[in-house]
Amino acid sequence: MSDSPVIELDGVGRRYGGHDALRDVSLRIDHGERVALLGGSGAGKSTLLALLNGSLLATSGSVRVFGQDLAALTPTTLRALQSRIGAVSQRLDLIEQVRVIHNINAGQLARWSVPRAVAALAWPRADDIALGALDRVGLGWATYERTDRLSGGERQRVAIARLLVQDPDLVLADEPVSSLDPARAAEVLALLRAPAEDATLVISLHQPELAQRHCTRAIGLRDGQVAFDVPVELLDEPTLSHLYALP
């Protein structure tokens, strides 16, 4: 398993109307890599992440995840693949009106039957997996709180606990820390690495220094194309200033 790449993009492009969000991107991300996606607003980071979990299809080229071509999958096989991919975004997408435990359980829904999900909603209960995940993010006390009553930072941790429960092999994070202060951002990034030390992580970031601290590799996107692709140790000022330069 380890020798085949987790992600393989070959000449991938994505058009919206007449605009190219991504052009001719070819990449290979191996098992266990932690990749930071850097780039200005509109560089194509979110589009790339959406292509990687199959919520968006490429208009040209091929996207292979875990060795499977996403465009060739049936809805059922795509779902099976997606259950191995954990996505977090700045928006969190939590279900606001329910107790925290239901949001955590949402992470293991792909493994549950519909009746079991309904029963868990009607008569709340927490299993060891859910409780363990909540303890790891320090929210054990909030298991039965209402989600919309938590603070911003606490909700962020709920989203991460949901991810832990899902236990994905690949984590895609779209600007998970852009609205957080530095201390909290570091905490969140550390937690994102937690699902499993050997999980692959692709994360879009605005802060190069966080990429250097938490990732192994940095990919810069500019105008929908790969501007650089280097180990984080090689990130330097000239490379970055080129990336963020205004056209």
């Binding site: 795509l78 779902r79 099976a80 693949l81 997606q82 259950s83 191995r84 991919i85 954990g86 996505a87 279900i95 239901h102 359980n105 949402a106 992470g107 829904l109 792909a110 549950w112 519909v114 999900a117 309904v118 909603l121 899902q166």
Partner: peptide
């Protein structure tokens, strides 16, 4: 995240 349509709506 790979959850079926009906299940996602229920949850």
């Amino acid at each position: 995240a790979g959850v079926g349509g009906r299940m996602a709506a229920v949850a």
